[in-house]
């Protein structure tokens, strides 16, 4: 059974330089699969951090792909090299907790292929479902908002300006 029919939640991080029209192209799949597919365009795959990958799994992805530029083609020189290493690091970490490291996968594109992001995603979805649902995800559904600010979950100093229905309109005018 392929990953799509298996109903898996797929998260795709990708280098935005790969597909200038990514925002439009990916919509076919977003419409079809709803919250089951999530795309996170990166300005450069070097922006990925192991924490992103872990949090993707934690918040509901069954499989996470990171699509990077061909070797030597990184706009920022070495972003894709770093992306590769960071993914490997995250793989090591999830392996330590007993999760299949292959749930995080690096897809390096090849020079000259003109695939759009939806075509790439299609290929990934058509792959055989090697894994069942991710046993480590914390929420069953990932359509829900998750406001967790992971780096600083406890910041007792920030008052919640927006509280329920009532606003304090008496605040002084802030014109220019």
């Amino acid at each position: 059974m392929d990953q799509k029919s298996a109903g898996l939640n797929i998260t795709i991080f990708f280098c935005q330089q790969l597909d200038a029209n990514q925002d439009a192209n990916r919509r076919v799949l977003e419409r079809e699969l709803g919250s089951r597919i999530k795309f996170f365009p990166l300005p450069c795959s070097g922006r990925i951090e192991p924490l992103h990958l872990l949090r993707a799994l934690e918040t509901g992805a069954d499989r996470v792909y990171l699509i990077i530029c061909p070797e030597g083609a990184c706009r920022y020189r070495e972003g894709n090299l770093r992306a590769r290493k960071r993914l490997a690091f995250a793989q090591g970490l999830i392996e330590e907790i007993g999760l299949e490291p292959q749930r995080l996968e690096l897809i390096q594109t090849t020079q000259g292929d003109q695939l759009t992001i939806d075509q790439r995603a299609h290929d990934l979805l058509a792959r055989k479902a090697a894994f069942g649902p991710n046993p480590a995800k914390l929420q069953g559904s990932r359509g829900q908002a998750n406001n967790a600010r992971t780096l600083e979950p406890m910041n007792p100093g920030t008052p919640d300006v927006y509280q329920g229905v009532h606003y304090d309109y008496s605040g002084k005018k802030t014109f220019i």
């Binding site: 920022y76 070495e78 972003g79 770093r82 927006y162 309109y169 605040g171």
Partner: peptide, 22 residues
């Protein structure tokens, strides 16, 4: 009368940091 109302989502800005932490 106005009063600041925070975003629920991060807004998208023109530039981004491409930080190599290593």
């Amino acid at each position: 009368h106005t009063s600041p109302v925070p975003n629920r989502f991060q807004s998208i800005t023109k530039s981004g940091v491409i930080a190599w932490e290593e």
